[in-house]
Design a binder for these strands. Structure first.
Length: 726
DNA sequence: TAACAGTCG
């Protein structure tokens, strides 16, 4: 590995942190390696790079990476760490001898935009020295690409082919403080890899609050410490900070707790609008309901006020918005890959009312005021019932800080917190519960199994999930025939299911479809289930959408078929997907056809893409590609082979469409977006449950209960008509 | 009887 440290230059001073980590104390003189014009950058780009706060830490970062196995960068937003550190490593020789520098991101959009920025700064063509990989898109050239950006999910998949990630010399895990499942799994696996590959260097970037828990995770345990402490690289993690370039944001708290955060948010916006200088407002609420209600209230207030309070442009923002609605917020020239927000028209003030999507996933320009309700919707998992609930819960200090920071991107801003300072200081949790501890773990466990991690319960996680959740995941995988009695992956089923990039239950249905002669159909269904929705949502046109959907609900449909009663022939949402897909293909993949039928054209393009990828995977695994034509029974049976644990039976003698799960006798209802809503067949299996005030089954298909015993005899026993037991 | 925090492969 190339050395970068120039003898004779001043060494940074290092001190022991009180927790045993190494803290870097930077000297006041900034780094002065400004003689790199040999690379032929445009001068202004070079100047911009040098003005970034992280530039002052360049030598120190390189020193730490050279000498410490793990370096934790505490970087505020705007420090430039993501774009600059990979370049420093490249300049420092870490990509010599065919090695690659990796930088992971939690989101695809970030991967793409950061990679193209870095390619531009380095003056190279994207996909050559600098490249990126996300699902469906490998923009790298093996042997040429030296700096590679990728999602952490892709890095996990790469480990299945190359468990030691041997081509990488340095792996930078960015945004680790978000603690997503895949980031946490990556961190756990990288820690293991480090023991086998001492030459591998890790850089973990994190916001302030999470840095210590991540550092303590990477601190070697006593039994691994011992004698070799002086060898390079040192095993103790080093911590260094790079300040951000954001502007200061003044924080305002309410004096007394508010009873109704929605009403409080609306009045706060009006107050800002009346009293504060120009600048857009971003309001954080919890979900679509809240947001639409607040938007309506604001519009009413703005209209009823006198002229001086006019000029409010109220814009709801959540991921379920249609393209048409998004276009009101985004400028017309943007593509999905390039979410640049349009400037506010003169004399107008934008009020963007948003879910958490604006906390991390989208960056809005021009925000000067933030209103923070203190709540967000969060998923919580109950391993006993195996149900994920979506509930409104208080956010963490880390989130509150992130939300406030959204006000300081263009100039000093203000944040209005709809909770008291006393609450913030004394009661708000410092950090959120990692996603890993709030989720069903089947996908996660099967990936670890595929990587040869046998002892799941003893795995060294950054945040251990409850034993109950892990045991539940093992149990489900066992019932799918993916794990054997020794909790090892079965062959070939277990390895095949792990290989398919879908939830294990859906992968299992995919395998079953090969045997039942309907794999072509299952590919379509799996692809359709992997997009958020294949339907467009237009507020106020719900009825037309429902009608459009029912036109596709029959087992067979002709394009000219009139609207008919679906009561007798509808077999469920999965079959409906097949009809939409068929219609889409027959139209020549026409966007006009989509529009006419309330089908989301962009979603359908994604379905095509996902289907192609799954088809390649299926071929590789030797799944026989075959269409069952009109035999929907084969399709429904294949679905049952994966989702038998989600079987439900309608409650007789009630007229409210109440179902009971076979497994736990839980009350569940068919989601109003399902084509089986109000149809209420006797037996169904569902794809997922969304649990709000009631438990709603989303994407439901009718079944014959006899199939349950047929496809999962180890799970169900038939005990006479209408009686089925586990 | 009426609904959808946000990601990823």
């Amino acid at each position: 590995m190339a050395k970068f440290w120039k003898p004779g230059t001043e060494k940074p001073r290092l001190v022991e942190d009180e927790d045993g980590g190494v803290l870097f104390l930077y000297s006041s003189s900034s780094s002065s390696s400004s003689s790199s014009s040999t690379f032929g950058f445009a001068n202004n780009l070079q100047n911009q790079r040098q003005r970034l706060p992280v530039y002052k830490r360049k030598d120190a970062i390189l020193f730490l990476v050279e000498n410490y196995a793990t370096t934790i960068i505490v970087g505020e937003t705007g420090s430039g760490k993501t774009t600059q550190i990979p370049q420093y490593l490249n300049e420092g020789g870490w990509s010599d001898d065919g090695h690659v520098i990796a930088c992971t991101q939690p989101r695809r959009l970030a991967v793409q935009s950061v990679a193209s920025r870095v390619a531009e700064e380095m003056g190279v063509k994207l996909g050559e020295e600098v490249g990126y990989v996300i699902r469906f898109e490998d923009v790298t050239t093996p042997g040429v690409t030296r700096v590679k950006f990728l999602t952490d999910g892709v890095l996990l998949r790469e480990m299945m082919d190359d468990p030691l990630l041997s081509k990488y010399s340095v792996i930078m895990v960015d945004e680790a403080h978000e603690r997503s499942i895949s980031t946490d799994v990556v961190l756990g696996l990288l820690k293991k890899i480090q023991r086998r590959r001492p030459e591998l260097r890790l850089i973990i970037s994190s916001a302030t609050i999470e840095a210590k828990s991540i550092a303590s995770f990477f601190r070697p345990s006593k039994k691994h410490r011992g004698a070799g402490d002086d060898v390079v690289p040192k095993r103790e993690p080093a911590i260094i900070s790079a300040e951000g370039r954001g502007f200061t944001v003044g924080i305002n708290y309410v004096q007394e707790p508010v009873a109704d955060y929605l009403q409080a948010a609306v009045s706060t916006v009006m107050l800002i609008h009346k009293q504060q200088a120009a600048g857009d407002i971003l309001v954080f609420l919890t979900g679509q309901d809240d947001i639409d209600a607040a938007a309506q209230l604001l519009n009413e207030e703005a209209q009823s006020s006198d002229r001086s309070t006019g000029g409010l442009l109220v814009l709801p923002l959540y991921s379920g918005l249609s393209r048409a609605d998004q276009a009101r917020i985004l400028s017309s020239s943007v593509t999905l890959q390039d979410l640049v927000f349009s400037p506010t028209p003169r004399g107008k003030r934008k009020v963007i009312i948003s879910t958490n999507i604006a906390e991390t996933s989208l960056t809005l320009e021009g925000i000067v005021y933030v209103v923070d309700s203190g709540f967000s919707k969060q998923r919580f998992y109950d391993p006993i019932s195996d149900i994920e609930n979506l509930v409104v819960a208080p956010i963490s200090k880390a989130s509150a800080r992130q939300r406030a920071g959204r006000a300081g991107r263009v100039r000093p801003g203000k944040c209005y917190r709809l909770y008291t300072e006393e609450y913030f200081v004394n009661e708000m949790p410092a950090e959120g519960i990692p996603e890993m501890q709030r989720s069903n773990l089947v996908s996660c466990v099967i990936q670890l199994k595929a990587l040869g991690i046998d002892n799941i319960l003893g795995f060294d996680w950054p945040a251990s999930p409850s034993p109950e959740a892990m045991i539940r995941a093992l149990e489900i995988l066992y019932s799918l025939g993916v794990l054997d009695d020794d909790a090892k992956l079965t062959s070939p089923t277990g390895f095949q299911v792990a290989e398919i990039p879908l939830d294990p239950m859906l992968s299992k249905a995919m395998l079953a479809s090969g045997e039942l002669g309907c794999s072509e159909e299952m590919l379509t269904i799996a692809a359709a289930l992997s997009v958020q929705s294949i339907w467009i949502s237009i507020r106020g046109a719900q009825k037309q959408l429902d009608e459009a959907r029912l036109r596709f609900a029959a087992a067979e449909v002709s394009p000219s078929a009139p609207l008919y009663s679906p009561m007798l022939r509808t077999q469920g949402d999965h079959v409906t997907f097949l009809n939409v897909y068929k219609g889409f293909l027959q139209s020549g993949k026409s966007s006009k056809w989509c529009h006419k039928n309330f089908v989301n054209y962009h979603a359908m393009k994604k379905v095509l893409e996902t289907r192609e990828q799954l088809k390649r995977t299926a071929q590789r695994l030797g799944i026989i590609l075959k269409s069952c034509d009109k035999d929907m029974q084969a399709v429904r049976k294949a679905i049952t082979a994966g989702f038998f644990a989600n079987a439900c039976h309608i409650e007789p003698y009630t007229h409210e469409g109440k179902f009971k799960t076979v497994r736990t006798s839980e009350d569940v209802y068919i989601h109003p977006s399902s084509v089986l809503f109000r149809v209420n067949p006797k037996w169904v299996v569902y794809h997922s449950l969304v649990s709000t005030d009631r438990r709603y089954m989303r994407n439901v298909v009718t079944i014959d209960p006899a199939w349950l015993v047929e496809v999962a005899p180890h799970y169900y026993q038939y005990q006479g008509p209408g009686s089925l037991n586990r």
